[in-house]
């Protein structure tokens, strides 16, 4: 178990390092932030001064070395655009994004997993068909289409809800519903197939044969076993929380991290983009790792194998 843990952590660290390196190279070698921020007509002296101020005149590997050492001390650098601390700029937006992401994830998980279980228990019957039709449609309708159709109905025609912004709690309703629908659709399909696989196992038949009431069989034997793949899926979703809302944020003009990424990428605000990438990749890697560890805890067979 310790060896497994150690290897897992090392690979996670290596992954994050490669992401940081790739982002660094991509951002520093493809264009000059000085030209983008100061404009193409900037006098050479101003460009040189900008380079010196941000250390862009040093060799690339020296820049990367100092960037890494800052990073290891928790320093993400300053925004080249306004000199603000990149980390605080990013975390402020992360908070705004999480305001819609957290409730949406919760709603998506509860409805998706619930619908999947119900569908599996009614396999082949009309209820199953209805749930699956809903799930497949929920997957096929892209978030931005679903969001815009809701805007058309509830904001333009009925005028019940604001079409965007984050001024009131009503503004959160449509983005949350849009995000939750997508997740619920994926989870419903996934949970259903996991449940069906478990329900076909001999131990379920044994459980009912030895006289357990059906609810007991489902609650005590089927659900815990079906939970394992479903938790993996939820882990992926948690890992993708920060980046998952870029398109939806644009639909509802929600001023979260998505908008920050779009604007800082186009203004080549290197420190901010890198900070976002590091945060996003770390969230993803860490949640994947936690899922792996949860596996071992949920399923003793994995523990022995690892």
């Amino acid at each position: 178990m310790t060896g497994f843990l150690l290897r897992r952590v090392l690979r996670a660290l290596l992954t994050i390092f490669i992401v940081v390196l790739a982002a660094f190279l991509a951002l520093r070698t493809t264009s000059d932030p000085a030209i983008v921020i100061l404009g193409p007509d900037a006098p050479p002296a101003a460009v040189a001064a900008f380079h010196e101020a941000w250390g862009l005149d040093r060799p690339l590997w020296v820049q990367f070395g100092s960037y890494m050492s800052d990073l290891l001390q928790g320093q993400f650098g300053k925004s080249m655009l306004d000199g603000q601390d990149a980390l605080s700029k990013v975390t402020a937006r992360v908070a705004v994004t999480l305001q819609i992401m957290m409730p949406a994830l919760l709603l998506g998980v509860v409805t998706g997993v619930g619908a999947g279980i119900v569908a599996a228990l009614h396999r082949g019957r009309p209820l199953d068909r209805i749930v699956m039709l809903g799930a497949v449609s929920g997957f096929a309708v892209p978030g931005f289409v679903f969001g815009l159709v809701m805007v058309l109905i509830f904001a333009v025609n009925l005028q019940w809800l604001p079409s965007g912004g984050n001024d009131s709690w009503q503004a959160m309703i449509m983005p949350i519903l849009t995000l939750a629908t997508g997740w619920a659709a994926i989870l419903a399909r996934f949970t259903r197939s996991a449940m069906i696989e478990v329900l076909d196992q001999p131990y379920i038949r044994t459980g009912s044969a030895k006289g357990l009431i059906w609810r007991e069989v489902v609650m005590r034997h089927a659900l815990p076993n079906a939970a394992i793949p479903v938790i993996t899926m939820i882990g992926f979703m948690v890992g993708g929380l920060l980046a998952g809302a870029v398109v939806i944020e644009s639909v509802f003009s929600w001023p979260g991290i998505g908008q920050l990424i779009v604007s800082s990428v186009s203004s080549r605000d290197v420190a901010v983009v890198q900070c976002v990438l590091v945060l996003v990749a770390t969230t993803m890697v860490v949640s994947n790792m936690i899922v792996d560890l949860l596996y071992g805890w949920l399923d003793p067979r994995m523990r022995e194998a690892g």
Binding site: T15, I16, I18, V19, A22, G239, G240, L242, A243, G244, V246, V247, I261, V276, L277, V280, A281, M284, V285, N288
Partner: peptide
């Protein structure tokens, strides 16, 4: 690495 970097970003 690919799985850790969301496509959209």
């Amino acid at each position: 690495v690919q799985a850790a970097l969301p496509f959209i970003i």
